[in-house]
């Protein structure tokens, strides 16, 4: 549950301020909203938005603005990832995390994005640790086509919290992705339910 002052609304995203951070939430993921009468009110921020809202406010414009800017995102249920957006394609974007390295994330699985408002870097790393163009592979237009480029490689889906989401990518059959786990089990995952993909470099 996110608490904050409703600040702005765009075509497919809203912005709240929780007293510390600006949180950009795609409307498609909003399940419930209620007035917060439990907590003491917080002041409306007087500083400028961390991103440009003047012309258009949409998820795609937010992702574009977030390119190269440190931010925290949530895609899987209980774990957020820190890093920065590097590229936005048709239905997915590329996110660089110092922990997971290059990640491919379908846009419709992004639950929220919080841009860093200070000059802090994730984990207080030095700026030169972060590559300008970290993607070793060329990028396909769609998430499915990008996954095809990873056939034969070890891949990790959804941050690897489930052992069945880590394995060798054997192929893509229609909407299903075939993975061979460490124990040799074959697991099929529906493409639409893959939230993140990264692979050991």
């Amino acid at each position: 549950m996110h608490h904050g002052i409703l600040l702005d609304i765009g075509s497919d995203v809203l912005v709240i301020y929780n007293g510390e951070d600006y949180i950009y939430i795609p409307l498609i993921h909003v399940q419930r909203m209620l007035e917060n009468v439990e907590d003491p009110p917080i002041a409306v921020p007087s500083n400028e938005y961390p991103m440009d809202h003047l012309h258009t406010l949409s998820l795609r414009s937010i992702l574009n603005n977030a390119k190269g800017m440190f931010s925290e995102i949530q895609v899987t249920k209980h774990q957020s990832v820190h890093g920065y957006v590097t590229t936005i394609l048709n239905d997915y974007f590329v996110f660089y995390s110092p922990v997971y390295k290059t990640m491919y994330i379908p846009i419709n699985h992004l639950k929220w994005l919080i841009p860093y408002t200070s000059s802090q870097t994730p984990y207080n790393l030095e700026n030169d640790i972060f590559p300008v163009n970290p993607t070793p592979l060329t990028l396909a237009r769609t998430f499915e086509l990008q996954l095809e480029k990873l056939i034969g490689k070890i891949v990790v889906f959804d941050l690897g919290t489930d052992p069945d989401r880590i394995g060798q990518l054997k192929g893509i059959h229609g909407s299903f992705v075939e993975l061979v786990t460490a124990k040799g089990d074959i697991v099929f995952s529906h493409l639409e339910h893959i939230k993140t993909v990264h692979y050991p470099s």
């Binding site: 608490h3 002052i5 609304i9 399940q31 909203m33 917060n36």
Partner: peptide, 9 residues
């Protein structure tokens, strides 16, 4: 807008 809310996602 400007209302203090709780949002479940």
């Amino acid at each position: 807008l400007q209302t203090y809310v709780m949002i479940e996602i």
